[in-house]
Simulated scan of single mutants.
Amino acid sequence: MKPLLFKIAKTEEEAVRILQEDYPYFYDNLHYHVETQIMVILEGKGTYFIGDAIGNFSAGDIFILGSNLPHFFRSDKDYYNEGSGLRSKNISILFSLETMGEKILDLPEFHAVKKLLHYSKKGLMVHGKTQQKLFKAAKKITRKDGMARLIYLLKQLDLISKSQEITALSHINFEPSTRPHDTKKVNAIINYIMENFAKDISLSDAANVANLSVNAFCRYFKQHTRKTFSQFLNEIRIGNACKQLIEEGYSVKEVAFDSGYYNISYFNRQFKLITGYTPSEYLKAHTNKHNMAS
């Protein structure tokens, strides 16, 4: 994976950096940084790419992104429309416990936290009561500074490290690279797919964006995303279909066409392959889950 190395602006006095962001859309270039990041979505929705995982995010979701883990959060298309009035807001907590001293994570009291930070290199999503507690804690930590902020963060990490309500997203580890040419090309390809997935785009279309032959493009794309072009495109399309089934109430046929599928049988096969459900089963499962949470 060769995303952009993203350097977090900070002062020497800060062990924990807090970013409160409020923009029309989230930063959508594939990137990574040395710091571990706890990202709390306050407002907005869209598609995430974390390691090799693709999925949907919305307000209330919480992610823990480990050191040097490639990721981006791309807002839905409506957020890019000028004058939409839509906002994308998040609180990000960025830190690197390793910078506090080589031995701190080797202390017995930090054993569970050390394990959590290693696990976070696959990208984690927080659920349930832990998610609810962490959401409130993220707002509280913005009002703290200095030692109080650091101690409060350690308490939250201890809470998360003991929780069973976290899910790893990526299946593999990545070795980061900082080659700017690769960064620019990968992001151009991803942006093209995200903007055109509902159309009948082909391998040759994507290869032209990268200025590569089809064979060279296939090797290049698999090397940088760990997915084939077809896998990536189908996961983006099915993610869009899931959102439309739940949020828009469209029929299966409407969802399929709007996600770039013109063959319903093929759409149903891909939906089952990626989600583990048929479209109707998925909608029923989501409805039941929503009713139980209400």
Rank of each mutant, 00 (worst) to 15 (best):
G66K: 11
G83M: 09
G46N: 02
G60L: 10
Y80R: 02
F49V: 14
V113T: 10
Y79G: 04
G66I: 05
R87L: 14
F63D: 07
G51K: 04
V40S: 07
E109T: 14
H33M: 07
L94V: 09
D61L: 11
L97M: 11
D28M: 08
F49I: 15
V113Q: 05
T47S: 06
V113L: 10
V113Y: 04
L86T: 08
L42S: 09
L65P: 01
Y80T: 04
P108S: 15
L116R: 05
P24T: 04
D76L: 10
E35N: 13
D22I: 06
D78E: 15
I93T: 13
Y79E: 10
E102M: 12
Y32Q: 07
G51M: 07
D78C: 00
R74Y: 06
L86E: 00
L30E: 08
I104W: 05
H71Q: 13
H33P: 02
S96A: 14
G51N: 03
I91C: 00
F95R: 07
K89E: 10
T36I: 00
L94N: 11
P24I: 04
D78W: 05
E21T: 15
E102Q: 14
I41V: 14
K45R: 01
I54V: 12
F57A: 01
F26D: 08
D106A: 11
L116K: 08
